[in-house]
Amino acid sequence: MKRIESIDIVRGIVMIIMALDHVRDLMHENSISQIPTDLNTTTPFLFFTRWITHLCAPIFVFLAGSSVFLSLKNNNDLKTTKQLLLKRGLWLLLLEFTIVNFAIFFDIRFHTLIVEVIASIGLGFIILSLLLKLSAKAIGYIGLAIIFCHNLLPIIPLAEHSLIRTLLAPLFSPTLIPFLPGRVLIIGYPPIPWLGIIFLGYACGHFFTLQSHKKPKLFLKVGLGALILFVTIRFINIYGDNGIWAPQKNGLFTFLSFMDVSKYPPSLLFCLVTLGIMFLLLAVAEKLPKDIQKITMVYGKVPLFYFVLHFYLIHIITLVMLFMQGIQWSEFEFAKGTFGRPKGIETGLSLGSIYLVWVFVVLTLYKPCQWFGNYKATHKKWWLKYI
């Protein structure tokens, strides 16, 4: 299948941005104790450092759905596509709970298991494999219904500890589940809201099959429409997100309040603004300077390879930072979800330094990603379908 350059470009852009979020999360001096979008403690620079990375997961998930549509259209083999999706979904779930979770926490005993974007895509592939007999339009309507309606769940009057709420909570909202002595499962990416995004991505896959001169106009219209709808619903301030915005101490912080939408779970407003920006990026992707296209496609062609590699590199750099800041190996804490950083001891880097480390990480991974992209393009080994 011929690769869609706009997909690789946009995916590459958001994956470069994604590394910034993970460098900040593991290495920023206040990342363990401070929520970067908390208007009571944040700064505009820190807020937008976190907010811009909101683009990554929904775009990553949406484009995964679109890639499934394009793959099915290319091979026109429902049975083969279904089997591949099912296998790849199971593989991604296994990868999340082993290699990825270890990369995040460096805890060989796996005291904390966390469900994040890789598992969400894996589960999305599995569910999507069961629905491929439906039309893309029908799957798209299901996705839209989930995106627009899942924020109704908190409105439903269910008793706090009722069986229905207990069963539904892990599907719709972040949940912490103890499952063995001293071990917990954290559902950071509840599956239902993210299914809505991957379903919508699948339904919109046909956008990428349109004639070249039609695609930018369509992407622009859809993107602007989503952003206008975001502003309208957010301004009304009644529905679409877990939190409402409110006037703050000045105009800038009021704007931050307006833009502070929920990723956990991804609210309707979160989806509108992030996917709206995605469509605008798709509209201009192939009009960007050729050098930028070339660089971003290097990362966008090997998303899973980059994802795994960048987490290990960032975490190794984090340990080097701790040693350089005088932390002894006996003081490292890997079982408490703090990435090795001991609580109660001041560690970490300033936000300016975080940006320098981010640039270093992205540049360091350029050549490995370029090599692996070329390897995938010139080899037909079966296992390359899963990386």
Rank of each mutant, 00 (worst) to 15 (best):
F208T: 03
K87T: 14
M321W: 01
L128S: 10
H54F: 12
Q328P: 05
E286R: 05
L180P: 09
I9N: 02
L220M: 10
V14P: 03
A203I: 01
L220A: 11
V222W: 03
I316H: 06
D21W: 12
I139C: 07
K294D: 02
I99E: 08
S129V: 14
I4D: 06
Q370W: 12
L72P: 02
L218T: 07
A136V: 02
Q325Y: 02
V100Q: 03
L113D: 06
I238P: 01
I126C: 00
C369I: 07
K87Q: 15
T347L: 00
K290C: 12
Q293T: 13
R88T: 03
T318R: 14
F372V: 04
Y239I: 08
T254E: 08
F235G: 02
G340V: 06
I59T: 14
I146F: 05
D77P: 11
Q211I: 14
A145N: 03
F62H: 00
I99A: 08
T53F: 00
I127H: 00
T274V: 02
F62D: 01
P58Y: 01
L304Y: 06
L349P: 05
E96K: 13
T81K: 04
T338Y: 01
V261C: 04
I316Y: 10
L220K: 07
S162P: 11
K336P: 04
K336E: 01
P44S: 08
A57I: 01
A335C: 04
F105G: 09
L269S: 04
P174Y: 12
T81D: 15
E29Y: 09
L185W: 04
G326E: 07
L95A: 10
M324C: 14
W358V: 08
G12I: 09
G373F: 12
V261L: 11
I7T: 03
L268F: 03
W371S: 05
I327G: 05
R88H: 03
K214T: 09
L92F: 09
I52T: 13
L152H: 05
L363G: 07
Y202C: 11
T364R: 09
A145Q: 06
N74D: 15
P368Q: 02
K376Y: 09
W383F: 15
L218R: 07
M18K: 04
C56Y: 11
L95M: 13
L220F: 12
F125M: 12
F207G: 09
L26Q: 11
H54S: 05
T53Y: 00
I277P: 07
I198A: 00
S262P: 07
G337H: 07
L84P: 10
P303W: 01
D241A: 03
P154T: 08
L72C: 12
R341T: 15
G201A: 07
R341D: 10
W383V: 14
V361K: 06
D25L: 15
V362A: 11
I186V: 15
V261W: 04
G240K: 05
E331W: 08
T37I: 10
A136T: 01
I114Y: 05
F172M: 10
